[in-house]
Design a protein around this nucleic acid. Structure first.
Lengths: 201, 201
DNA sequence: CCTACCGATCGGTAGG
DNA sequence: CCTACCGATCGGTAGG
């Protein structure tokens, strides 16, 4: 019989994950060492390998659990059955609120997922595609007269660009809050999409 | 008297720079080795050190020369003295055309500049700030009635988000060209900014 | 759960 | 005494 997990097992893993996300975000995956991570967690280096098979698995778990959080937000907002404009507005606001508390995880997702092996990388990319598709459908619902349906995904990517690029410049302690930014991005995008002559583009 | 540089010196440096940008973009700065770079250039590893003091200096030169190119585009477009809308439209188009041919350089700029020492990193960031300010001014000229002037830089960052995020998903051989993307982003942004009630935001 | 290590590979430089 | 360039190997450190 397998010995049951210690009750603190999941807590320890979560602590390692959070510390690793910070280190990977600051130093990059390859430049952040396992010894450094162990020190940050206050445990020995070999003990890390009790919780995670190897360094890549820690990276995978950061990206995977973060994508699960974003997917959960998409599902929650979907269950509210909002009108098209309110739906997209709410998606944007909830994502920016999540981003504010997950800056390290987001940087790891953007910068380090490419270092995963094909199989694990594809798992993450599949989850990303589902989220992008949800935004693309929300944009499609907004503009039923949008003639070129193939523009829905590119428009979603433009929107993600506005939101995700905030990681390079928006500071939680700056004059502009994440909520302010969500409002401005929402206004620009909603008015931009409806006013632009994309029917002819 | 110092012996003059070999006539091929600058050509060799340019070849090293291009190969390094590709490797750094694909593998990340720390995971790309000097041996690998030397092999890609068809020279011995010690010879690399004839052209560049160390690995960090190669990274600096990629980012610095790329920022000079972007700054030159800003200056060129400025000399055309276009009307506000045409000015911003042209800036966006020229940047996307440059991006199409500099995907590796751009990824290095975004992902690896943080590994430079304080002093060199600040030099790059200074040049980035000048380009952002030029876009912010172009946006301000577009909207003289924009009450909250402090929104000009955030709006410029939203625009850069749309443009720069294209590196994560836009393919040169895909159905949507960089020029198409420039058009769509321009339409969304121009209409979005002018229609949004940012005076009250 | 630690100290003590390994196979390998890193960035950078020696002599000639 | 400079440059341009080679084969071989340096001291240190990475992940495990």
């Amino acid at each position: 019989m397998a010995r049951p997990k210690a009750p603190t097992f999941d807590l320890q893993r979560a602590a390692i994950l959070a510390a690793a996300a910070g280190l990977f975000a600051r130093h990059g995956f390859h430049h952040a060492s396992m010894a450094e991570l162990a020190a940050a967690c206050g445990v020995s280096k070999p003990l890390l390998y009790h919780y995670y098979r190897d360094k890549a698995h820690i990276l995978f778990d950061i990206a995977d659990s973060y994508m699960d959080k974003l997917s959960a937000i998409v599902a929650e907002v979907g269950r509210e059955h909002l009108a098209p404009k309110a739906h997209l507005r709410t998606l944007i606001l909830r994502f920016m609120q999540e981003y504010q508390h997950s800056q390290a995880q987001h940087m790891v997702l953007v910068q380090d997922v490419k270092f995963l092996a094909e199989r694990e990388r594809e798992q993450i990319l599949d989850k990303e595609r589902l989220v992008v598709d949800a935004f693309a459908r929300a944009i499609g619902a907004l503009q039923p007269r949008l003639r070129r349906k193939e523009l829905r995904v590119p428009l979603a990517m433009l929107l993600f660009g506005m939101l995700n690029w905030s990681f390079t410049w928006l500071r939680a302690d700056g004059p502009l809050s994440y909520e302010d930014m969500a409002t401005v991005a929402t206004e620009v995008f909603l008015h931009g999409v409806s006013a632009a002559q994309l029917q002819e583009a």
